[in-house]
Design a binder for these strands. Structure first.
Length: 376
DNA sequence: ATGCATGAGAG
DNA sequence: TCTCATGCATA
């Protein structure tokens, strides 16, 4: 049955890198990053909600959402409604007629396509071309500072640099959370060292946000020059045959270029993308030689929830008040908005994640040359 | 380019 | 249950 043959899972299981801890420094994220969180539009609403919150939280400090049902929740919702009216000039809201449905699902698949298979040892024997049909996607995590992220099978354990934490995450994605940290140095591990060398990087340099940003920019331009799409790059990565490195999705490449990834994730991916870039340019130069090396140049329906704008505004308002609502609060919000609890929970998770994205920490003014497009 | 989702791993 | 890394599907 449908099972989830979902690739994601499989992929992750098989490919997991393990190392990672590159962790960004706490200050890194929190301070600068936070300021730019909530990007847009409904900022006004958020402000309203915040104000509301201030007065309230001032005293109820502890559990702001305590009275969520009739308290903030409704107020925030009211604000949201107002906001909506202003912007959309139209119906009102509160309950929304139903026309605008929130939580719409789109079809899903069942197996279709491209099975992206988990990577296992990838290197299939048939590595024919670069884009291997079964693109195996890899997950990587930052290895301490020089991430290369091999998959767990290979390295894991890595070390010290991660000092604390690390237990290793194994299979899966690697995430290195937990720790914070700064970093540096773990680059002496053989594998890592090799990877670093291959990529030609400098460990310390790699963790500098500005360097990351500069690299992302360079990467994008050179990639375009090569005439390679983001999707092509993702698939071609598998052909690099770096230990533990399989394919990545277009989404991830896109996010890397736009710095919409966590600092750690950026650090982990940089060496890999750099390695690809160098190899791709080399191949482009000598017109595809080494027949041995696969070229790195180009040669299911799931359900998806769509939260309507009104509900989204309300969620944003709630988020401004309490980014981490408890399970009960979430349930209350879900009920109010007529959304599934899980949908609301995931929305908050994603919102929090969004807030932490690296972009937030890189200010254009820092770089001098605006960054490609991330506003602010 | 992004919204919503999944799943591993860590508390 | 949360955080993270990542992906699919969609706009």
């Amino acid at each position: 049955m449908t099972m989830s043959m979902y690739s994601t899972t499989d992929k992750m299981k098989m490919s997991a890198p393990s190392c990672f801890p590159g962790r960004y420094s706490p200050s890194y994220r929190s301070s600068e990053q936070m300021r730019r969180c909530m990007p847009n539009p409904s900022s006004r609403l958020l402000e309203d909600a915040s104000l509301l919150c201030n007065s309230w939280s001032a005293r109820q400090n502890g559990d702001i959402f305590a009275g969520i049902n009739d308290g903030i929740l409704s107020r925030a919702e009211a604000l949201a409604a107002v906001d909506i009216q202003k912007h959309q000039a139209q119906h009102v809201h509160s309950q929304m007629p139903s026309q605008i449905k929130h939580d719409v699902m789109y079809h899903h698949h069942t197996m279709s396509g491209p099975p992206q298979r988990p990577l296992q040892m990838h290197h299939s024997m048939d590595q024919l071309d670069m884009l291997d049909p079964t693109g195996q996607m890899t997950t990587l995590a930052p290895i301490s500072e020089s991430p290369l992220t091999p998959t767990h099978q290979h390295l894991h354990g890595s070390y010290h640099s991660m000092n604390h934490m690390m237990s290793h995450h194994h299979p899966g994605t690697l995430s290195g959370h937990t720790g914070g940290h700064h970093g540096h140095s773990a680059v002496h591990h053989p594998v890592i060292t090799a990877a670093v060398a291959a990529a030609g990087l400098h460990p310390d340099t790699d963790t500098d946000p500005r360097e990351l940003e500069a690299f992302a920019e360079r990467f994008k331009q050179r990639r375009i020059k090569l005439g390679v799409t983001q999707a092509d790059v993702g698939k071609a990565l598998a052909n690099l045959k770096l230990p533990g490195v399989g394919a990545l999705s277009q989404s991830t490449i896109c996010r890397f270029e736009s710095l919409t990834l966590s600092h750690n994730n950026m650090i982990a991916l940089k060496p890999i993308l750099q390695a690809w870039l160098e190899e791709a340019e080399a191949q482009a130069k000598n017109k595809r030689r080494d027949p041995d090396a696969p070229s790195v140049l180009p040669a299911g329906e799931k359900k998806r929830t769509s939260i309507a704008a009104p509900e989204k505004r309300s969620l944003e308002a709630y988020f401004a008040v309490q980014p981490r609502p408890s399970g009960e609060k979430i349930a209350a919000i879900a009920e109010k908005l007529d959304l599934k609890k899980n949908v609301v929970r995931v929305w908050f998770c994603n919102q929090r994640q969004k807030q932490k994205r690296i972009v937030s920490s890189v200010t254009p003014s820092m770089t001098g040359h605006g960054s490609a497009g991330f506003g602010y």
